[in-house]
Computed example of a mutant assay.
Amino acid sequence: MMEHLRDLISKSKPGDKHENYTFKFADDVSYTDPVDGSVAAKQGLRFVFTYGSRIMYRLSGTGSAGATVRVYIEQFEPDVSKHDMDAQTALKPLIDIALSVAKLNNFTGREKPTVIT
């Protein structure tokens, strides 16, 4: 799945449309430790859209078998009246894009997440 997403990153161009979202950039995230300066590469794949919406895919090996796929979905909402909306409802369009782009169902065989936080 991660290789599929890396291939997608290499083919994506600013301005590409994903439903109502406009692609800005994507990258393979690295983390630089502020204390010792060490760099941890390939910490996740991030897709950023205009207006600050983003999707990040990470693998975590902390499960009992294989890797856990973690998907982080964020969206800026300037309308204060929408801040109390259920996150699943407010982020549904972006969630649908995240699932479709990653082909999560194809790669994992799962129809829905096992944990949502």
Rank of each mutant, 00 (worst) to 15 (best):
D7M: 12
T32C: 05
N105C: 14
A102E: 09
N105S: 15
K13V: 06
P78A: 12
V48I: 07
G63N: 03
Y57D: 06
S38L: 02
D84W: 10
V71G: 03
K24T: 00
A65E: 15
S12A: 15
L94A: 02
T50Y: 11
D28C: 05
P78Y: 10
G44Y: 01
I95G: 04
R46C: 00
D28Y: 04
D16Y: 10
D86E: 11
S10R: 08
F25W: 08
Y72F: 13
F49I: 01
S64Q: 13
G63I: 03
Q88K: 14
G61A: 07
G61I: 01
K11S: 07
Y72T: 06
F76L: 14
Y57E: 05
A67N: 15
F23L: 09
G37L: 05
Q75A: 14
I55V: 12
K42M: 01
A65P: 00
K92D: 05
L59N: 09
E74M: 01
K42W: 03
G37K: 12
F25C: 02
D16H: 11
D86K: 10
V39T: 14
A65K: 15
S100Y: 04
A41T: 10
D96G: 11
Y51E: 14
S10M: 03
P34F: 05
F76I: 09
V80L: 07
R6E: 09
G61C: 04
P14M: 02
P93S: 06
R46F: 01
F107Q: 12
V29C: 04
V48H: 05
M56A: 08
T68R: 14
Y57I: 01
P34A: 07
T32I: 07
L99F: 15
Y21D: 08
D33P: 00
Q43I: 02
S64I: 14
P34K: 08
R58I: 04
G15Q: 03
T68V: 15
G109I: 13
K24E: 11
V48R: 10
M85N: 13
F47P: 04
F107M: 08
T108W: 10
P78W: 08
Y51S: 12
Q88W: 01
Y72W: 04
I9D: 00
G66V: 03
P34G: 11
L8P: 00
M56V: 14
T89L: 06
V48N: 07
G66T: 04
K92F: 07
V39G: 06
R58D: 05
T108C: 15
F49Q: 03
V101Y: 11
F23P: 03
R110T: 11
L94F: 06
K13C: 09
G44V: 00
L104N: 05
R6D: 02
E111T: 15
F76T: 12
K24Y: 03
D16T: 03
K17N: 05
P78R: 15
T32W: 00
I95Q: 13
Y21S: 01
G15W: 01
M56S: 14
N20Q: 08
L91A: 01
S81A: 13
H18N: 09
R54S: 07
K42H: 10
S60Q: 13
K17Q: 15
Y57W: 10
E19G: 13
A90Q: 07
V35H: 02
F47T: 02
S38P: 01
N106M: 14
S12N: 05
D16G: 08
Y21T: 04
L5W: 03
P113K: 11
R70M: 14
F23Y: 12
K42S: 11
M85W: 12
Q43K: 11
K92Q: 13
L94C: 01
A90E: 08
A98K: 06
